[in-house]
Design a protein around this nucleic acid. Structure first.
Lengths: 387, 387
DNA sequence: GTAGGATTGTTTGTAGTTCATACGAACCAA
DNA sequence: TTGGTTCGTATGAACTACAAACAATCCTAC
């Protein structure tokens, strides 16, 4: 039940969430945004300052009518270090990220996973994490592990990874947790990205949105009312295998007309070959966009790519009534032209809703975004207190 | 913020929710299910007993080892009466429903709404509600209004109703609230149904599911973690106009290949005509099922109907990771054969998920289910305390 | 310069809640 | 009749947010 102490936990979490959503804030502003009082905010913030999670910034200028200058609080560069791991088809990346989003150290390994070298992978991951945490000021609060594939968030196991089948069945969560003595949290990469968007990206201050990854596959993470939606047993977000064209091309999964078969990179390259574009095997949204002004075939393919992505997004919009889609991955290289083209396709297909027209934005092509996402799996657990 | 008094409100709501999910429960069982103590449950339950919302049932038999007999509590037949209104293309229904789900009085009117008779409709609705509430023991806690069409849940206006365009723009919520002095809550019919399923139907005890209405149109209500998901501005749930076959038939909405164009009653009847079935203009799942054993064309159409419904459900399952789909409307007439056929199609298309295979169930073809759904719009507001 | 008003951040007392513990009441079996 | 068991309630402790008051800081006006 919701006891007094638990209520305190919830409110502390809400204060941190408000900071993430709005950036550095002084106590009166925090009180206003959380619907509380300066006194209560002071009681909540003080322990965080003592603990070293937050720190006071330089005082703001006074208002026109005078008064004591307010001192905004923000995450200190040493507060709450957490581990971040990305499991990729050809290896893994690891980093230490603080609550404020600073990546304090980082390293990577290259191992091609097979069904038989799981012990090797676990061992090399462990030493990788020891390496990046060597200089950490305090013990890690947890390790977030983002996997490109289906995972069981309860057990921490990798269920199925299409692009790295050697990872299937790897209990990466428990293995690392045991060898390092730090709690681990495993989740899908698009969901980690959604959480990263919430704390450090384009989702800041948005209560509901969809974070989409479009690349070799298509995956989604959903934030509803400020909290991640995982679905039963951590399923959900497998938007790539929703059927949008029953008579469409065959998908690798065996079904026909999956969104992924019409909008993933593989489709883009195969179409580029069919349409006679140069170097189709390595082409992507970036090169296609560069070609488009001179090459009508490239422009047409880009338009079809936008349309295909748009169909799936519009479907999600109709179903969920979401007003914001944050796109990561391949399309980001296409720049503003591709973004607005996708957005137009979505708006053409989605009717007028009371919530207003949907927005499609591209994520920053920041190298750290995905690592921050993995770290956010851990951080968000302190922000969504179950009760 | 979450003050002590608000925490109490949340916990009281949780106790009621636990009762809805499990049926009559004694205090020790309530304590166990809510993770609380007998003492706290007693403090919460007592005021509800005094108020008349709950009442104690006959004592249960003692356990094998003796002990005082427990007295389960349940909603009294007079507790918390709420109004329920259904806005239909050819009129409206109204009823008074208690917190326990009893329909204590009921009446209906037939008016074909046009853009010009909104005042007339509001007036007749008001007198209809006065009629059904004449014998109510206590004033209504609120009036829930379920509309077959898109509504703005903030303003209480009907935005767009495909099957009754005369309702467009009718501010049914504010009009009734003003004339009766009772708060009104307007929502989509499928969403009301989802709430009805949560409190009184197949959704009892389920934390996440999708309640689907398949008839002239297709709509959905989503329950995530025990709470209704509305989407931005009350949009969302317009699953009928998701595209599942880009080269498919033209939909009334102007797009091609909408789910609705392939699985709504209109498709069923047009296909029945094409395939030469008898009396195609009035055929439905019930008659089709009766025909199927002797008539191969009917059996084939039924199978296609199941497949078409299944595609859309499987898409929803992939996106949201939902394990339970409660189907209302036309398909219910098809009985167990149709249900299992739909379920099989869904399972064939959805991969193995950690959450287990999805289930498709048919709602009880109960005449009161929809009215209880409308009432649940009001009741659920006391169960999902915002803080 | 200095007084007055305004704003920030803290201190203190109060109200509301859950929880642990203890107690009487009710029930069964021997 | 007695002992063990379970139910429901009463009491005190712990915790929290809130209201009100207070000290510190800052600006403007005279």
């Amino acid at each position: 039940m919701l006891s007094s102490s638990r209520a305190g936990e919830v409110n502390r979490a809400r204060v941190l969430k408000t900071l993430y959503a709005n950036g550095p804030l002084a106590r009166p502003e925090l009180a206003r945004l959380t619907g509380s009082t300066r006194a209560t905010i002071g009681q909540i913030v003080q322990p965080f300052l003592d603990e070293g999670l937050l720190e006071e910034q330089a005082p703001l200028a006074s208002g026109a009518r005078g008064g004591k200058r307010a001192r905004p609080v923000w995450f200190s560069s040493a507060g709450w270090p957490v581990g971040a791991v990305l499991m990729l088809p050809d290896g893994a990346q690891a980093a230490v990220v603080t609550a404020g989003g600073e990546v304090t150290s980082r390293a990577a390994i290259r191992v091609r996973p097979t069904r038989k070298n799981h012990d090797l992978i676990a061992g090399r991951l462990t030493s990788l994490l020891r390496e990046v945490t060597a200089n950490a000021a305090s013990p890690l609060r947890g390790i977030g592990i983002a996997v490109a594939g289906m995972v069981d968030t309860q057990t921490g196991e990798i269920v199925r990874s299409d692009h790295a089948p050697g990872l299937n069945g790897l209990a990466v969560g428990p293995l690392i947790a045991e060898s390092l003595g730090v709690p681990t949290f495993v989740d899908l990469q698009p969901r980690a990205q959604a959480l990263g968007d919430m704390l450090f990206g384009a989702g800041r201050g948005e209560s509901s949105y969809c974070s989409l990854y479009v690349g070799e596959g298509i995956g989604a993470g959903f934030i509803f009312d400020g909290a991640l939606h995982r679905g039963a047993g951590g399923a959900g977000g497998e938007v790539g295998h929703t059927i949008i064209d029953r008579d469409g091309p065959l998908c690798e999964c065996g079904l026909t007309g999956c969104w992924e078969a019409l909008a993933a990179t593989r489709w883009l390259r195969e179409e580029a070959a069919v349409r006679g574009l140069p170097q189709p095997k390595t082409i992507g949204a970036a090169r296609l966009s560069a070609l488009a002004p001179q090459n009508p075939a490239a422009a047409a393919l880009l338009e079809d790519y936008a349309a295909n992505i748009g169909v799936g997004i519009a479907n999600l919009q109709q179903i969920l009534g979401i007003g914001l889609f944050i796109v990561h991955g391949e399309p980001v290289g296409g720049g503003e032209a591709l973004r607005s083209s996708i957005e137009n396709h979505v708006r053409r297909q989605a009717f007028a809703h009371p919530g207003g027209a949907p927005h499609v934005v591209f994520a920053d092509p920041d190298d750290y975004a995905t690592l921050r996402g993995a770290a956010s799996i851990v951080l968000s657990r302190s922000l969504d207190v179950a009760f």
